[in-house]
Design a protein around this nucleic acid. Structure first.
Length: 156
DNA sequence: GCCAACGTTGGC
DNA sequence: GCCAACGTTGGC
């Protein structure tokens, strides 16, 4: 079992949207490294820190879990979608996504708070210039965040 | 809106 | 294969 941090712009899909829908395809990833995490490394049941980016107060807004195997991202075939990729064909799809299911909505843990914890200094999201929308999280980081910052002891 | 940092593209 | 130019990300 692995852990991940996945960024979403709340204007597109917020933690409240995820709570309401229960489960969503993590569509729109157009970065090979992030795609490869979904395609090659994620397992159903993996823990996800749901992160709100590009908003007034960026930070971790809740917990989710990986809920499907990877499969072709439907938006790549839709010419009307901003995620359309003319190079991609159903025969040889370039982009995949997994489904992500809601686990918990938590009080927002702002990025500024994450930066204050030495235990989290190695997190991908905190590295200078890091833009990856999906980054691995260590078990120690996951436990520090869920136990110390969220005061949750019974998830995952 | 600014801008640092990064990934991708494409000419050579 | 190099690398300059460009587009994008995302915090501030």
């Amino acid at each position: 079992m692995s852990y991940w941090l996945m960024k979403s712009e709340p204007d597109e899909v917020s933690i409240n949207d995820l709570a309401r829908l229960g489960q969503v395809p993590w569509f729109g990833v157009r970065n090979y490294q992030a795609r490869n995490f979904m395609r090659d490394a994620m397992q159903v049941g993996d823990g996800v820190l749901f992160y709100h980016s590009s908003c007034a107060t960026p930070g971790i807004a809740g917990l989710a879990r990986v809920a499907s195997l990877p499969y072709p991202d439907a938006t790549q075939f839709n010419p009307a979608s901003p995620y359309f990729d003319a190079q991609s064909t159903p025969d040889r799809p370039r982009w995949v996504n997994v489904d992500v299911a809601h686990v918990a909505t938590t009080p927002l843990i702002p990025l500024a708070i994450l930066r204050q914890s030495p235990a989290l200094a190695g997190m991908g999201i905190l590295q200078k210039g890091s833009r990856l929308s999906i980054t691995p999280v260590t078990a120690a980081e996951w436990q520090f965040i869920t136990r110390n910052l969220m005061e949750l002891h019974d998830v995952f």
